[in-house]
């Protein structure tokens, strides 16, 4: 073994100490790094940004200004009905559609395989993903709340107490379902399926509009994760109360999604 290995014959190379000094970074630091990375990548992607912010803002502004033209009659002001629904839509787009698409392509590009041989454990990878989702959602909600306030949104007092648990449990439910889709389908199929489901739930899933406005089908939508999250957000923001039944539905979906994902997800 020759010690002078770091020096080039031409003396160009900088001396580097390659001697082994392995070790994982502390777990919280790894999770923070992973979350920051995933959040950055999500926000950098134009299509995802469209899904995350632009579409919800259009739905909010369009819904509020067009509600009485289209003949929607709510028991509350349009902005107070639409805002919690659009916040639910933003949560759904990030924790389901964006997460599924991103994870599908991570599998395809070998990112998950690569990270699988790094010191980051799978629990850390999952924690990083969840944290990244919550980060992006916080930004989305900030933008949407500003727009809503400009439109004279007046949430009920105590809205936060019902909205925060709904967002957290809703994120859990949609994220577990998103990971399930990403784990069983190829990346392109995931892209198509995640977008299709998003559009279907937006149109018929009682996210933005209350389940009561769907007539007979409305009862079915209260059992969908979209309807449960939308109704929970509306109940919190309109009445300032916690929608225990809807939270229960979301917990059920989170459990179903987790079991399905755990049984089928392949990391490669």
């Amino acid at each position: 073994m020759s010690p002078g290995g770091g020096v080039d014959r031409l003396g160009r190379r900088e001396e580097m100490d390659f001697s082994p000094r392995p070790g994982p970074a502390p777990f919280p630091r790894m999770v923070a790094a992973q979350a920051a990375m995933e959040a950055r990548l999500m926000l950098r992607n134009g299509e995802q940004l469209l899904l995350a912010v632009v579409i919800p803002v259009i739905v909010l502004v369009g819904g509020v200004s067009g509600a009485h033209h289209v003949g929607f009659h709510f028991t509350h002001r349009a902005v107070d009905v639409f805002t919690p629904g659009v916040l639910a839509l933003a949560v759904m787009s990030t924790s389901f559609t964006s997460l599924a698409i991103a994870t599908g392509f991570e599998r395809r590009y070998g990112v998950i395989k690569r990270l699988g041989s790094s010191p980051l454990p799978r629990s850390g990878l999952l924690a990083g993903k969840v944290l990244a989702l919550l980060l992006v959602e916080a930004l989305q909600i900030a933008v949407l709340v500003v727009v809503a306030v400009i439109l004279d949104w007046q949430p009920a007092t105590g809205a936060l107490g019902g909205a925060v648990p709904a967002i957290v449990v809703g994120t859990g439910a949609f994220a577990s379902l998103g990971l399930f889709v990403a784990g069983v389908l190829r990346a392109e199929a995931t892209l198509a399926a995640a977008n299709l489901i998003y559009v279907l739930l937006l149109a018929a899933g009682a996210v933005v509009l209350p389940s009561s406005s769907y007539g007979a089908f409305g009862h079915v939508t209260t059992w969908l994760p979209s309807g449960a999250l939308g109704d929970a957000m509306r109940q919190a923001c309109l009445h300032g109360t916690v929608a225990w039944r809807d939270l229960g539905v979301l917990v059920l979906w989170a459990a179903i999604g987790t079991v399905l994902t755990a049984r089928t997800f392949r990391w490669e």
């Binding site: 994982p24 991570e106 590009y109 070998g110 395989k113 690569r114 041989s117």
Partner: peptide
Amino acid sequence: LPRIGVMLQGGGAW
């Protein structure tokens, strides 16, 4: 895992 380094044949990045 922290003690080994792995170079895959391809991919491995977003």
